[in-house]
Computed example of a mutant assay.
Amino acid sequence: MTVSPPPRGRGTTDNPDNRYAPTRCEAFDDGWHQEVPPSRATEVRQELAKSVITRNRSPDVGFDRSLNPYRGCEHGCIYCFARPSHAYWDLSPGLDFETRLIAKTNLAERLEEQLSRPGYLPAPIALGVNTDAYQPIEREQRLTRQALEILLRYRHPVHLITKSALILRDLDLLEQLAAQNLVSVAISLTTLDNELKRIMEPRAASPAARLRCLRELHAVGVPVSVLCAPMIPMVNDAELEQLLKAARDAGAQSAGYVLLRLPLEIAELFEDWLRAHFPQRAEHVMSLVRQCRGGANYDSRFGLRMRGEGPFADLLARRFQVACKRLGLNRRELRGLDCQRFAPPGAQLALW
């Protein structure tokens, strides 16, 4: 089956029904053929959130709380594990996820409110985990910068992960946080091939721009690491060692990787993307994915969902370990962020 590629700047043209929808839509040729433009402008809705700090108990991640200024992501990464979350808003994980975004416009107010609550115990907040906190709409919305300003004022530790060069806009805040051991940044780097980046992560920063972020952050004392995620069999996995070396040369001292994850609706979207861009190897790629997931498209078990199992997954893990050892990455455990500095403004006045 031939699948048409999405328009330039979008990860997919598909917009499948979300899994909670009470009805399903099917295309039907009634003889009145019309050319419908495949592109769609980005729409941003406003949300007044009741709370903005999300808690989790997952043993697969190194944090228990996160902060996400946006729902949906304009970067359009075809593999994004967050796509299925759009179903909670009666939206599609496909094109809707890239074009119908939701901004938590009262984020600053709610964040201050939660940090100021009596009995709040600080621990590093992961900022921008479900969707990228520095996606293009952040230029106008500035919600991520507002959050960083509050975290700096409260002296609260924060982890950031992004694939956007927009993070350099906030270098002034990040440098101040780093001086107090309150921040670390991970740059997601998936390929050094500009054309592959264009079709896989259409509105994310170029590989060169992400390496520049590592260099400039490192230069002002911000601890930086690289996250090679996801590694996709026969698509970008051959670049693993090159990615790690390029990141090390740019200042990264630690690294991680994640094997491709295809939960829920993502599997169908990803297979369509493969058939559109890599028709001759699509079946081979999916065969390797299923070999790593017990014969299925996805295995959600803790401890396995990030790494997979089987010969290919084991080889990828071994390659990562050998490359990190050779490059001096992950040589020593990174110093933890400082939670002892936390001080809500005005807290001392309450003692009088």
Score class of each variant (00 low, 15 high):
273 W>I: 05
248 R>E: 08
170 D>N: 07
94 G>L: 07
343 A>Q: 15
115 L>A: 05
66 S>V: 00
87 A>H: 01
137 I>E: 00
281 R>F: 05
130 N>M: 14
233 P>C: 04
188 S>L: 05
233 P>G: 04
166 L>H: 12
279 P>C: 05
137 I>R: 04
328 G>K: 12
38 P>D: 11
110 R>M: 09
72 G>S: 10
323 A>P: 00
119 G>M: 08
95 L>T: 10
48 L>N: 11
154 Y>V: 00
31 G>Q: 11
37 P>M: 12
308 G>R: 02
3 V>P: 02
339 C>S: 12
61 V>I: 15
270 F>C: 07
9 G>T: 05
282 A>R: 02
128 G>N: 05
298 Y>N: 06
9 G>C: 07
264 L>S: 10
227 L>S: 14
77 C>Q: 10
187 I>K: 02
28 F>P: 01
25 C>N: 05
23 T>Y: 07
65 R>W: 01
107 L>T: 00
198 R>I: 07
247 A>M: 12
96 D>C: 05
187 I>W: 03
23 T>P: 00
58 S>D: 14
119 G>V: 08
56 N>E: 11
139 R>S: 12
270 F>R: 01
230 P>W: 00
44 V>Q: 11
127 L>Q: 02
30 D>L: 15
55 R>P: 04
26 E>H: 15
123 A>M: 09
13 T>V: 11
127 L>K: 03
128 G>C: 12
55 R>A: 13
228 C>I: 09
169 R>F: 12
59 P>E: 03
12 T>F: 00
348 Q>I: 10
304 L>I: 12
40 R>P: 01
73 C>E: 06
13 T>L: 13
303 G>Y: 04
119 G>A: 09
3 V>W: 06
190 T>K: 02
181 N>F: 07
